[in-house]
Simulated scan of single mutants.
Amino acid sequence: MPVKGFMERIKSDEVVLVAEGYLFEFERRGYLKAGSFVPEVVLDFPNRVRELHEEFVHAGSDVVQAFTYYGHREKMRLIGKEHLLEKLNINALKIAREVADETGTLMAGNICNTTLYQKDDPKLLEETKSIFKEQIEWAVEYGADLIIAETFLDYGEAEVALDCIKQYGKGIPSVINIAPSAIDTTCDGVPFDVACKRLEDRGADVVGLNCSRGPATMIPLMRKIREMCKGPICALPVPYRTTPEQPMMQSLVDPDTNLMAFPENLPAFQCSRYQVREFAQQCKEIGIEVVGLCCGNASHYMREVAEVYGRKPPASKYSTDMSLHYMYGSKPHFSKYYTQNYKTYYKSKTED
Rank of each mutant, 00 (worst) to 15 (best):
60 G>P: 02
318 Y>K: 13
105 T>G: 01
100 A>I: 04
256 D>G: 04
284 K>N: 08
92 A>D: 06
10 I>S: 00
105 T>P: 00
316 S>C: 09
104 G>I: 09
298 A>M: 11
188 D>Q: 11
75 K>S: 01
139 A>V: 10
344 T>R: 14
338 Y>M: 12
267 P>F: 04
101 D>K: 15
117 Y>K: 01
259 L>Q: 12
175 V>M: 07
145 D>K: 05
307 E>R: 15
340 Q>C: 14
193 D>V: 15
41 V>C: 03
222 M>C: 12
266 L>S: 02
80 G>P: 04
166 K>D: 08
84 L>W: 00
265 N>E: 02
200 E>R: 08
196 C>T: 07
319 S>A: 15
227 E>C: 03
47 N>Y: 06
194 V>W: 01
114 T>W: 01
39 P>V: 04
223 R>N: 11
204 A>W: 05
156 G>Q: 00
95 I>P: 00
297 N>E: 04
54 E>T: 10
180 P>A: 12
80 G>C: 05
224 K>P: 01
151 T>F: 12
258 N>I: 01
29 R>P: 10
86 E>H: 00
284 K>Y: 08
179 A>K: 06
336 K>Y: 05
285 E>V: 12
106 L>Y: 02
348 S>W: 03
308 V>D: 06
256 D>M: 09
294 C>V: 06
283 C>S: 11
339 T>Q: 11
232 P>E: 02
133 K>R: 15
161 A>D: 07
191 P>K: 13
75 K>L: 06
1 M>N: 09
173 P>E: 14
326 Y>L: 07
349 K>H: 06
219 I>K: 02
287 G>M: 05
247 P>Q: 10
347 K>Y: 04
139 A>I: 13
208 G>Y: 08
331 K>D: 01
274 Y>V: 03
64 V>P: 07
101 D>T: 13
300 H>I: 09
28 R>C: 11
277 R>D: 09
190 V>Y: 08
28 R>E: 13
73 R>F: 04
338 Y>F: 15
206 V>K: 02
334 F>K: 05
262 F>Q: 10
82 E>R: 14
26 F>L: 14
39 P>E: 08
123 K>S: 11
147 I>D: 04
183 I>L: 14
97 R>D: 12
278 E>L: 15
323 S>I: 05
121 D>P: 02
69 Y>F: 15
126 E>P: 03
73 R>W: 06
235 A>N: 09
210 N>M: 10
52 L>K: 08
305 V>G: 05
80 G>A: 14
205 D>M: 12
293 L>E: 01
337 Y>N: 15
171 G>L: 09
119 K>E: 06
